[in-house]
Design a protein around this nucleic acid. Structure first.
Lengths: 143, 143
DNA sequence: CCCGTTGTCTTGACTCATTCCAGAAAAGCG
DNA sequence: CGCTTTTCTGGAATGAGTCAAGACAACGGG
């Protein structure tokens, strides 16, 4: 299976070589927001059996470095990846099942990005994570 | 060495047994904000040589469950612990050296805690992490 | 003050995500 | 089409964190 023109274009736009493995990884992340590494690996192997896990890890790192995907890693969870980049959105994480959903920031494009005291840090990003219980887990508990 | 009365009181107040190991763990976290597990382990062994790492892990989990310490885990970092709880402050993390500093929230007690769309999640906490470069690393780079 | 109960600590093995390494293969350029 | 550079494969290693069973200590009742 050929990578879609969009994927090829995205990779070339980031000055990355277009390899089948890399394209499959990017496609998998695009198709499955917030997928963890293992999910991505299995999705890629659906397309390209025999791909090594190392290729997936490496591709994810490369894509992350190029800004095509974003790595998120809520405390106590394995790394997850998403392809929605550059729009400063945030995440809700379920304390019970670990599922993740997107949240558009309620207060503007760069919330709380002006802390009162920066302790000499040069801050370039503010990341917001909401913690709670997802609908499914909440329902399961009350039932 | 005896645990200080404050530590004993804190533990009893949380309905936890006052063991020497546990008191030493709590004292270590109080003395070293944002210490990672290994740092805590070594600090505890300064007081009580021969403590098992398991006791430290277990104490940290218990204290976290009791709300006496808070566990923070920025992406790509090992778990860190701090004793400042209940005041909804946030953190800056240095991308270069991983050091952490406290930030009092600039916009109030519960920033951005009302997302526009909650996807069925019941949210109970908003965590904010600022990413940037600390003074030392910034100076090292320009030198 | 001593004893039993209950919860904690020790010891040591183990899991599993992630990384490291060296050789093989493929992409892209001329 | 062949060369160079980058990427991929396969396998082993690393290391934070967890599991389990038995020894031990804290604390409330006698």
């Amino acid at each position: 299976m050929q990578p879609t023109p969009e994927i090829q274009q995205a990779l070339r736009g980031a000055e990355l070589r277009v390899t089948r493995q890399r394209a499959a990884v990017l496609a998998a992340v695009l198709a499955r927001p917030h997928a963890d590494t293992d999910t991505v690996l299995r999705a890629v192997r659906d397309e390209l059996p025999g791909v090594s896990h190392q290729a997936v890890y490496d591709s994810l790192h490369t894509l992350t470095g190029a800004g095509l995907v974003r790595r998120i890693q809520p405390a106590g969870s394995v790394a997850r990846y998403e392809a929605r980049t550059g729009d400063n959105h945030h995440h809700v994480v379920c304390r019970s099942c670990g599922s993740v959903a997107d949240i558009d920031c309620a207060v503007g494009a760069a919330p709380c990005l002006t802390p009162s005291e920066d302790h000499g840090f040069v801050i370039d990003e503010a990341e917001v994570v909401f913690w709670g219980t997802c609908g499914a887990c909440g329902a399961a508990r009350t039932t």
